[in-house]
Computed example of a mutant assay.
Amino acid sequence: MVAVSADAFSEKAMLEWSPLADLPDTLGRSGVFVGVHNNALIVAGGTNFPEPVWENDKQWYDDIYVLSQDGDRWQWHDGFSLPRPLGYGAVVSTPYGVLCMGGNDAEQIYDEVFLLSWDSVEKTIQRRQLPSLPRPCAYSAATRIGDVVYLAGGMSEEDLHTAMANFWSLDLSALDAPDVLEWKPLPPWPGPSRAFNLVAAQHNGHEYGVYVISGRRMSDSEDGRVEFLTDVYEFSP
């Protein structure tokens, strides 16, 4: 595990990577839900290929690891789990917990949404179910401006032909008002549908905006090849 510090300014570099404690799974994980809450790093679910890699199918996991700091020492906490093996969803760190959205397993794509929060006193993970996405979604990305989470792109089925032009928001300031808390559709970007895209929030000098960046889709050509996108779109809230 590696961390980057924005405080490490020097003539050579403004950012500096430093190693942390390695993930307990020595094989590593792909497609994990990763975020920070209460100064702890939460790593949930994900996939890998057990060794020997070429002789085994991909495995999905339901375990949750939490990395916290005690003085100068970093320590992993385990023994927590998701309700099911899950990976390749969107994830955003929030003041309320790590928001996990959608994802898949070996059988299907899900629309479920939940918060994972770290109790630093009891050293436990709490899970809170939130309103589901408007439709199943995996291989998407999300970001946050204030209390509002924005999710864009993704696939509704295990086929890149189902890549979407979806753009949804969820206002977490309504967490304690379940009759108001819901995902809202927003105008899609003026470009092709996509999955495996990036989403980021950035100040443009005037205001914070949401940026939908790159991704991939099935092209409209007769050969049906995968199209890797390079376009960028800005949404002004």
Rank of each mutant, 00 (worst) to 15 (best):
A3H: 09
S5G: 05
A6K: 14
D7H: 00
F9G: 00
S10M: 06
M14C: 05
W17D: 08
W17Q: 08
S18M: 01
S18Q: 05
P19M: 05
P19E: 07
P19C: 04
A21K: 11
D22T: 11
T26I: 09
T26M: 03
S30P: 02
V32W: 02
V32K: 00
F33Q: 03
G35A: 10
V36P: 07
N38M: 02
A40W: 06
I42S: 04
G45M: 09
G45N: 07
T47K: 05
N48I: 07
P52N: 06
P52L: 01
W54S: 13
W54P: 00
E55H: 11
N56I: 02
D57N: 09
W60Q: 03
W60Y: 15
D62N: 14
D63P: 00
I64K: 08
L67C: 03
Q69R: 15
Q69M: 11
W74E: 12
D78L: 00
G79N: 06
G79S: 06
F80V: 08
P83S: 15
P85Q: 11
P85D: 10
L86S: 09
T94K: 03
Y96P: 01
L99M: 10
M101D: 06
A106G: 13
E107W: 12
Q108L: 13
I109S: 06
I109T: 13
D111I: 02
D111L: 05
E112T: 15
E112S: 15
L115S: 11
S117K: 13
D119W: 04
S120R: 14
I125C: 12
I125L: 13
Q126K: 15
R128F: 11
L130V: 11
S132F: 15
L133A: 07
L133D: 08
P136I: 02
A138S: 15
Y139K: 11
Y139A: 10
A141N: 15
A142P: 02
I145F: 03
G146Y: 08
D147A: 12
V149M: 05
Y150W: 11
L151E: 10
L151S: 03
G153K: 10
S156D: 11
S156E: 15
E157D: 13
L160V: 14
L160Q: 05
N166A: 15
W168M: 07
W168H: 11
L170H: 05
L170A: 04
D171R: 09
L172V: 08
A174R: 10
D176E: 09
A177T: 14
D179L: 10
D179V: 09
L181F: 03
K184Q: 14
K184N: 10
P188E: 09
P188S: 14
W189H: 12
G191S: 13
R194C: 04
F196S: 08
N197W: 03
V199T: 07
A200Y: 02
Q202E: 13
H203P: 00
N204R: 01
G205Y: 06
G205M: 07
Y211A: 01
I213Q: 01
I213P: 00
S214E: 07
R216Y: 01
R217I: 02
M218R: 12
M218T: 09
D223I: 06
D223G: 05
V226H: 01
V226M: 04
E227S: 03
E227G: 00
V232E: 04
E234S: 03
F235P: 00
S236M: 10
S236V: 12
P237V: 05
